[in-house]
Design a protein around this nucleic acid. Structure first.
Length: 804
DNA sequence: AGCACGCCGACT
DNA sequence: GTCGGCGTGCTC
């Protein structure tokens, strides 16, 4: 078994297979499946993943593995197999699947450099070249290109005077601290202490310290303790009195924060009824998917916590997924509070190094629970007892780049491997999941009442067209304003929700109606007030607001649409006494800002919390009695068959923020389309009715959950190329499918151009097409050349969540 | 994805 | 005659 099958780090069709390598004798038994290795590949060296060991290979001229990159495999057998599965399910490259399962820190970094050959005679080198090597031993390739001396250097390389080397490097280093310890016994230290000259005061102090404390001490601590620098330590080390070593440590994103321990709460009848089947499944090692459907505030989290507790008692591990956006300190607190340092947390707010450290805690079995966003589903546990997905309906569980996986699917696959339950929790389940629960594919568990039986808040829907007709042109309806004033008077708190950050959404000329678009994308530019710039959210293009309309030269340029910033300004104008905290991507991007703002609000330092998406979930403050949704329809008109569902879910989630404790809550929803069923039913907080209504719509239009959908998006710099390729793909797919399936296309994408690339697409709706995956694979094969060199891009999503 | 190899046009 | 353009095919 001295041959390794290796998947190399070259994401391309032609290299999407295993390459065999010899394992050099000194590495036999060291190299194991799941390890990262450095291998020679053509003239360069690259990273690869060992997927298996074997005794023989069909290939004649095997090369040898250069070196291992890990002491222990980073992928266990289950994850290796899961990688294969991912590849098939999402049509991605094997290497992409493996990399998606690991923290980004483990992705290789490559360096290409030039060094002088060992036997090269400096004097024989051209002057320009030897001058370059005067300062450094090695020259980075990119620097060589910039210097313009590359042709010369290459010539010397072919003469054998210069070597081109390829290096594979780690992206992130393990964090280490230097520790100092006594390297001699106390007697010897005491002896030396005597011999030291009187002016060596610092050395004396340090030695005296080590007479009592022999143990390793962080060097930093010594520095601050005695006001010394490393030279003092070095001096003592040279005398053989002290020793120094590097110790690996974890970065600690939570500081030395203590989390207050909590005990399991007494379950309500409803919770108890819901948890029994889950515990049953845990005890019997049964793979089963539960849909835990409970209104906001019904205590789903406690059900999760106690299920996990049972899993831990059985010596197994748990994965909890929460949407990125609600992975708030509040959420972390609940899990760390219950399970202490058995919990690892993985979310995008952590640096690459911090994520890597949390991942290593899992890998080393130092923790038993991981709470994290989408990618935490790949946590390298080996003894999973439960997987929980909170806010199951959230679209952020779908990865929108390759591999385009849905965490829910991965969860069910992994739970199948481990014979353990999956719990999907939501107050507003996705139609797909609720339908599956109805069909009995998932086991439906319902929490009907809020804890302490609080009433759901009362919801008022305000028709903003009516307001306009009656002369109210502000963004606040009279009723909302009145209620806000009322709460301000009572010292109760208010949450205002707006689904848009920034200032205005687009810039338009009032005279001719010209909307300023991005020159590279077919999308309007967004106005950002802080720097007076218009920005494209797709390609990053930025430009100042023009003084005059580019079309008609009118100076009546106006900003349309309302963002959080603008609301904040407006509030300051009409309610100057109100203290407002604004929470959106712009105010929470700094580390810890999120928590700080929430703490401020909780401590009553503000009356109004104004924010986007991110305040829709998880907030649980007793003093909130009014929730205002400033514009319910912002997402309703998106070209997306799920827009009604998303609107309903969002409104329901936001409404749930009010009146969770003793005080009763009220919700005001402002809208221009009050008659739309998703808004009307959100007002009535009737999920079941919404489900029925929406299912009818989906059935008529043949969308999920009645049909599966797949989306092929083609893009190219030339419009005609994009169109013709999409046309051919559409025809081919059509010819491969049964009569019940529907192929829509080719049509321009909802955003027909991004970054100067034209985008066309083809949507496939089907009930059963076992051959579709194969056909789509063939499509990719067929256009492989154009994709590789012709600037063509073909992306395939087998279950898209964003149709743009 | 790189990179080498190879086959054609424009220059010392 | 050679330098360098980028099309083609290979990487264990």
């Amino acid at each position: 078994m001295n041959i390794a099958r290796v998947i190399v780090d070259v994401p391309a069709k032609q290299t999407d297979r295993a390459f065999d390598y010899k394992i050099p004798s000194h590495l036999e038994g060291v190299i194991l499946p799941g390890m990262r290795v450095v291998v020679p590949f053509g003239p360069r060296k690259i990273q690869g993943f060992v997927t298996a060991l074997q005794a023989e290979s069909d290939f004649q001229q095997l090369k040898s593995i250069s070196e291992p990159m890990d002491l222990n495999p980073v992928l266990n057998q289950e994850l290796l197999t899961l990688g294969e599965w991912l590849t098939e399910k999402t049509l991605c490259y094997k290497i992409s699947a493996f990399q998606a399962m690991l923290p980004a820190a483990l992705k290789a970094k490559y360096e290409k450099k030039l060094v002088m050959a060992k036997n090269a005679d400096r004097k024989l080198l051209p002057e320009r070249v030897s001058a370059l090597f005067q300062k450094t031993e090695e020259i980075l390739w990119d620097d060589a290109v910039k210097s313009g001396a590359l042709p010369l250097l290459q010539k010397e390389a072919s003469n054998g005077n210069i070597e081109i080397i390829y290096q594979v490097k780690e992206r992130v280093k393990k964090k280490k601290v230097k520790q100092v310890f006594a390297a001699a016994d106390p007697n010897k230290l005491a002896d030396y202490l005597q011999q030291l000259p009187g002016n060596a005061t610092k050395q004396k102090e340090v030695l005296e310290y080590f007479l009592h404390e022999e143990g390793p001490v962080d060097q930093k601590e010594l520095f601050s303790l005695f006001g010394i620098t490393s030279s003092t330590i070095k001096g003592l080390m040279q005398k053989g009195l002290l020793g120094q070593r590097d110790v690996e440590i974890y970065r600690n994103p939570f500081g030395d924060r203590e989390f207050e321990r909590t005990e399991p709460l007494f379950l309500t009848d409803g919770q108890r009824k819901a948890i029994i089947p889950i515990l049953n499944s845990i005890e019997n090692n049964r793979h089963e998917t539960f849909l835990l459907y409970g209104v906001t505030g019904s205590g789903k989290t406690e059900v999760y916590l106690q299920s996990i507790q049972r899993v831990l008692e059985n010596g197994k591990e748990a994965i909890v997924l929460v949407p990125e956006i609600s992975l708030t300190p509040q959420m972390v607190k609940r899990f760390k509070g219950r399970f202490g340092n058995q919990v690892a947390v993985m979310h995008s707010g952590l640096s690459a190094g911090e994520k890597y450290d949390e991942w290593r805690k899992i890998q080393r079995k130092e923790v038993k629970v991981v709470v994290g966003a989408r990618s935490a589903i790949f946590a390298p546990f080996e003894n999973l007892g439960i997987i929980i997905i909170d806010e199951e309906h959230e679209t952020s569980y779908k990865q929108e780049e390759n591999p385009r996986y849905h965490a829910r699917d991965v969860a069910i696959e992994r739970a199948g491997n481990h014979k353990c339950p999956v719990v999907l929790g939501s107050a507003t389940p996705s139609l797909e999941s609720f339908a599956r629960a109805h069909k009995g594919v998932y086991h439906l568990l319902t929490l009907e009442n809020r804890m302490n039986n609080q009433a759901l808040p009362s919801v008022d829907i305000i028709d903003m067209r009516e307001e306009l007709r009656e002369g109210n042109r502000s963004m606040f309806s009279r009723k909302l304003l009145e209620k806000i004033k009322d709460r301000l008077g009572k010292k109760e708190q208010i949450v205002l929700f707006l689904n848009k950050r920034g200032h205005s959404s687009f810039v338009m000329c009032r005279d001719c109606g010209y909307v300023i678009n991005c020159p590279h994308c077919d999308i309007s530019l967004t106005y950002h007030r802080y720097n007076q710039q218009m920005k494209c959210h797709y390609c990053g293009y930025e430009a100042p607001v023009p003084n005059a309309c580019p079309e008609c030269e009118s100076e009546h340029i106006r900003y349309f649409g309302t963002g959080t910033q603008k609301v904040e300004e407006e509030l300051a104008k009409i309610l100057p006494e109100a203290k407002v905290i604004r929470m959106d991507v712009d105010t929470t991007s700094r580390k810890g800002a999120h928590e700080k703002l929430l703490d401020q609000f909780q401590d009553g330092h503000a009356d109004i919390l104004l924010g986007t998406q991110m305040i829709a979930k998880g907030l649980d403050f007793p003093n909130i009695t009014l929730v205002g949704v400033l514009s319910a329809d912002t997402m309703l008109h998106l070209p997306d068959f799920r827009s009604s569902e998303k609107t309903f879910q969002l409104l329901t989630q936001v409404s749930g923020r009010a009146g969770r404790h003793e005080l009763e809550g009220e919700v005001i929803i402002q809208t221009y389309t009050p008659e739309h069923y998703s808004i009307e039913l959100a007002g009535e907080q009737d999920y079941d009715k919404f489900y029925e209504r929406e299912m009818m719509v989906r059935k008529i239009h043949r969308y999920p959950p009645f049909y599966y959908i797949s989306l092929v998006t083609v893009s190219h710099e030339e419009l005609m190329k994009a169109v013709s390729v999409t046309e051919k793909i559409t025809q081919y797919i059509q010819s491969k499918l049964s009569a019940e399936s529907i192929v829509l296309g080719p049509v321009a994408s909802p955003i027909p151009r991004i970054n100067n690339r034209y985008r066309y697409q083809c949507l496939i709706k089907y009930k059963r097409e076992p051959e579709l995956g194969l056909a789509l694979k063939k499509v990719l094969d067929n256009y492989q050349q154009d994709i590789a060199t012709g600037g063509l891009s073909v992306s395939i999503d087998l279950n898209p969540y964003i149709l743009m």
